[in-house]
Simulated assay, not measured.
Amino acid sequence: MAYYVYILASGRNGTLYVGVTGNLPRRIYEHREELVPGFTKQYGVKRLVYAEAHEDVRIALQREKNLKHWSRAWKLALIEAGNPSWRDLF
């Protein structure tokens, strides 16, 4: 089973959200449809701009924690490296 660390954005250089899930399509659908109250619903963060897969849930959870502690500039550079046009990967 794969576990995904992902970054959502409200738009190019907008508000960012870092999360982890075992079912990326379902989780992105929940964010988009605002099915779960919280940060992404409050700030309209729905665009999948980055994702990476891990086979070990512990590694995925640690990676999520690490990314959450990164500076905003580092997160933006990570997104830009793989998705320079900030297109929605979903």
Rank of each mutant, 00 (worst) to 15 (best):
Y4T: 15
Y4E: 03
Y6A: 03
L8D: 02
L8M: 11
A9T: 11
A9E: 00
G11Y: 05
G11R: 10
N13H: 10
G14F: 03
G19W: 09
G22L: 05
G22R: 09
G22Y: 08
G22S: 14
P25C: 07
P25N: 07
R26K: 14
R26V: 06
Y29T: 12
H31A: 10
R32C: 06
R32F: 09
R32H: 12
E33G: 03
E34A: 14
L35E: 05
P37E: 10
P37M: 02
P37G: 08
P37V: 08
G38H: 03
F39D: 07
T40L: 06
K41F: 01
Q42H: 14
Q42R: 15
Y43F: 15
G44I: 13
G44H: 09
G44F: 11
G44M: 13
V45R: 02
V45E: 06
V45P: 00
K46D: 11
K46W: 04
K46S: 08
V49Q: 03
Y50P: 06
Y50E: 01
Y50A: 04
A51H: 11
A51Q: 03
H54V: 02
H54K: 06
D56E: 09
D56L: 05
D56V: 07
D56P: 02
D56T: 06
R58A: 12
R58D: 15
R58Y: 15
I59S: 08
I59Q: 10
I59W: 09
A60R: 06
Q62T: 07
R63C: 06
R63F: 02
K65G: 14
K68H: 12
K68C: 12
K68Y: 04
H69A: 11
H69V: 07
S71R: 11
S71Q: 04
S71D: 10
A73Y: 04
A73S: 13
A73C: 02
W74H: 13
K75V: 08
K75Y: 00
K75D: 00
L76D: 10
A77L: 14
L78G: 01
L78T: 12
I79E: 00
I79V: 05
G82F: 00
G82I: 05
G82K: 03
G82A: 03
N83S: 03
P84G: 13
P84K: 13
P84I: 12
S85L: 12
S85K: 12
W86P: 01
W86G: 00
W86E: 00
W86R: 01
R87E: 13
R87H: 09
F90Q: 06
F90C: 09
F90S: 11
